[in-house]
Design a protein around this nucleic acid. Structure first.
Lengths: 233, 233
DNA sequence: CCAAAAGTGTTCACGGTACACCCATGC
DNA sequence: GCATGGGTGTACCGTGAACACTTTTGG
């Protein structure tokens, strides 16, 4: 029950923020996009992009807005992660933060957009700087969620270029899940799901045999899903 | 970034509430615990137990407190579900609500505790009354989460008495997952996980052959899990 | 011609699924 | 004695896992 008369005026309200864990993948590492703070607390330290929720925007809108304002990143896969409500997360005052995670294609334009914003940078997930607030916890939670979700939802494609080689997809899974995968079995399984378009195109500028490129076909995925076929890797 | 100087004072803050979807299981139906509102909006209508988050309590604490205050329910399995932030969820003002779901043993003392609180009642999940706010959405989200989580976490036991027959457990799974299960296969699978204590006790007061009772053994479950054995049903 | 990665099938073990009858108990 | 659920085993099939060599290309 949300009962204004009993509580809302009687007590001080926590501030409400959103924070975004933005993941990117650069061929052999999972990375996170961080912002350098220029104000205390934690001035000069690194933190997740995020900020306060405005009174007339939804949480999703707030997350996208802050992400865009602070990093230039736009039009990404974005999903709510968890809401962090520890009483002392922020030393200034009580701030509850709705955390999101986002998946971006490092390969596209977005690298430039992100890096020309003020003091934003990509860090390897396994080599993060000291982080402000409880942002290390948030990133850990996001990583576990990504590991879980990658297995049974086709979200890995959000981290790859539109056209990709199967070996890239495999490396992504190996890096995120932190375990090696068998090449033949992986290919067999992915292709058997029948959700990829095999393109008449191969990699360019590689110093060895060029791999065939594929593209994730959302329509075919939806059809397969509707037919009861589960995504599973 | 949580930056008080830029936003916190400049803009009005949403109010922050928690709401709880409390599930119970009564042998052949999944039920939800609702509260009858006595104040507008939706006065006289049914809603989830919940209320505003105080400035000095965590979100989990707020959820447990409200649940206890409004329904008498205490010491239950409780987990954060999702945060609902639609701009017009509440007609009075902007309220963001962190939703939780709880699993309670209807069999224990809690039925009494719940029903003697003011205007709380159990409703079958598939026969809910009209609900206040977006609480129907919240319940639907909770149901889907429960369906997903039941498969790979041993949380179903939270809905059963401490001592239960395998057929009760099976009915629970059938009801929640909304699909029939094969008796022999179900028993084989559950028992093979080796996480139940077989008791020297049988059902009482049944009009047919009494079933053997079992108890979920948390220690054995943890050991099995540590050894890499996954829960899966 | 060498290095580096692409591409390709088969075998085996295990787990999931389908399926039907007798047993114990209370009324 | 009859109705109601309790309790039990086997056969088949499909999927997941293990595993090694040839091909292509660029340098």
């Amino acid at each position: 029950m949300q009962d204004t008369k009993r509580h809302a005026y009687a007590h001080a309200r926590p501030a409400l923020a959103v924070d975004c864990v933005v993941f990117g993948f650069d061929e052999d590492q999972l990375r996170v996009l961080l912002i350098q703070r220029d104000l205390p607390p934690f001035a000069g330290g690194w933190a997740l992009p995020g900020g306060f929720v405005r009174i007339d925007e939804t949480l999703d809108e707030a997350a996208r807005r802050e992400l865009h304002e602070e990093t230039g990143v736009d039009r990404v896969y974005l999903e709510q992660l968890y809401t962090f409500g520890g009483v002392d997360r922020d030393p200034r005052e009580r701030v509850v933060s709705v955390a999101y995670y986002a998946l971006v294609k490092l390969s596209s334009h977005q690298v430039a957009a992100a890096t020309d914003a003020r003091d934003a940078a990509w860090f390897a997930l396994d080599d993060l700087p000291p982080l402000a607030f409880d942002h290390a916890d948030i990133i850990e939670t996001a990583h576990r969620r990504l590991q879980g979700k990658l297995r049974y939802e086709p979200i890995g494609f959000e981290l790859l270029p539109r056209k990709f080689a199967l070996s890239q997809l495999q490396r992504l899974y190996e890096v995120v899940l932190e375990q090696p995968l068998d090449k033949r079995n992986f290919r067999k399984k992915v292709l058997s799901m029948d959700i990829l378009d095999e393109l008449d195109e191969v990699q360019k500028d590689v110093a060895h045999r060029a791999a065939r490129l594929y593209r994730f076909d959302e329509r075919r995925y939806r059809r397969a899903k509707k037919a009861g076929q589960e995504f599973q890797l």
